[in-house]
Design a protein around this nucleic acid. Sequence first.
DNA 1: CGTGAGCGT
Length: 288
Amino acid sequence: MVREEQPNKLRWGELDDDSEDLDFLLPPKQVIGPDESGIKKVIEYKFKDDGNKVKITTTTGIRKLANARLSKRAVERRSWPKFGDAVHEDVGSRLTMVSTEEILLERPRAPGTKAEEAKSAGDPLAQMGKGGAVLMVCRTCGKKGDHWTSRCPYKDLAQPSETFVDKPPTETNAAAGGTKGAYVPPSMRGGVPERSGTDMRRRNEENSVRVTNLSEDTREPDLLELFRPFGSVSRVYVAIDQKTGTSRGFGFVNFVNREDAERAINKLNGYGYDNLILRVEWAAPRAN
DNA sequence: CGTGAGCGT
């Protein structure tokens, strides 16, 4: 209770000053190693606050990590010969080192077109005839490897091909085209008789969706690929700066069906594409 | 004043 009555007990204020004086009472410090793998062990003794002795074992070298858990594989790796910039390093002197070796990184891209586009350097039409396994099927005339649907020369004339098989199922065509699994053109969906001249099912510049915050190298084929799954796309456009030839970072996608556009907006607004978060919304009517 | 905002050949 009363500190003065306990000879070994130190007052906190005395610790620093007196601890040296008492060290001779402790067993000598032992140093073991370093062994062949660079591990060094130091065993020393100290007084705790309450005057009791404690044994302190300090392991240094790589085993510091090993104490957590060093797998057998990791131990094995330590015996591998140094390579690269590390060949001149002393064995065991360092576990890791900074290399100045250049490593080319590829920016993350959405699967598909971007990589293809990079290969053919631009125009996706240039891909045809190059023997690549490019899956480009026009939804209007069914021609393969010829053009995109939005560029179909017959797009305002012909009925969409019935041989088309790559159409992803949507609620609309799944409901309407259950028989034979045949493709159902947008204008025939829902079994509703055509209301000619009315919005909704006319191929025009309506149902226009604005896409902003596009990365600089996003091109129209990329936009098409991105929006295509939601329904028939009648047009894609990416604004290009005429002076620099670079993308201005926004574009437009027109859908044949308003409800497809709406689904695209709901799904793609806020979607991460290339390194950016897309903004997708209804476009204001174009100024003429 | 600023221009780090942006709705299309």
